[in-house]
Amino acid sequence: MKCRVCRGPAVVDVRRHNAGFCAEHFIDHVHRQVERAIDDFRMFSPEDRLLVAVSGGKDSLAVWDILLDLGYDATGFYLDLGIGGYSERSKQAAVGFAQRRAAKLIVRSLADEHGFSVPELARLTGRVPCSGCGLNKRYEFNRAALQEGFDVLVTGHNLDDEVATLFGNVLHWNVDMLGRQAPVLEERVIGGDVALVRKVKPLVRLAERETAAYALLRGIDYIVEECPMVAGNTQHRYKEAVTLLEEASPGTKHQMYFGFLQRAAQRFAGDAGEGRLVRCSSCGAATPAWDDGEAVCSFCRTKALAQRRREQGPPERKSRRRRR
């Protein structure tokens, strides 16, 4: 196979573009796809201060690397989830990358900020680790961005992530989630102050295989190992299912996601449930306004539950049913 651009030997094949690329021209291809996503969805401008949520995995380090190459003002943010050796090694990957690129990285730990790790939270609340973890990440990423004065929060979600989410939302007809699924979530303001920072996903035009190839070709030392809590993750089953379809007909993922954005997303806009936001009476973060009394955000409710359980000892565990 030959490079589409220079006719030299190809090292990556991108079947949905019916193209092979040498290393140099593949990196150009990745940069162009990201530039195009930033332009098409008006994600941000060179004046904006960007905070990149970095896990130490290939996608978040790749998006940070690309934004730095493209000349954006991008700072990394690593949240230590306290998941044993996995968190240690993923933090090293983030710190190592920041040092090599002489980029700014903010490191915070869940245990220091709130007094628990993801495994402890799961044990105390009896919920699956990924649900508490996701809640914590959303809360902490937004809080850090606001406290440190960033304009935009960047995540490393790629085309496969978005297609898997869309696939799951369609399988279960989560119309509210379909109404919110987009490459850009606009900031939300309460009383004139930003309460939810603008969120963007510059890798939506790149399949996960492309971000992995990019990280490898750029010599980015990312963590290949998976989080030990991931077992049985439904998101991953959806990725595998869609990847089988992609293998049989290249372009399926792109068609499903961008077709949704162009022709279907608007139809669910009214289902998004993006009602009025108020400030949490406990921590001040944004939370949906319910009619009854004062609002406490789901992060504070979960944290309070964990603290109560810690004082009382954990609940009797019944046989754990699988979440569907």
């Binding site: 196979m1 190809a10 090292v11 990556v12 094949d13 079947r15 092979g20 290393a23 295989r209 992995a212 190839a213 490898l216 070709l217 595998e240 990847t243 089988l244 992609e246 293998e247």
Partner: peptide, 17 residues
């Protein structure tokens, strides 16, 4: 499934053919 993996030899990427 080839779409789900990268194949690497001596730290270089290989294509299907």
């Amino acid at each position: 499934v080839p779409e789900a993996v990268l194949v690497i030899r001596d730290s270089t990427l290989l294509t299907r053919d």
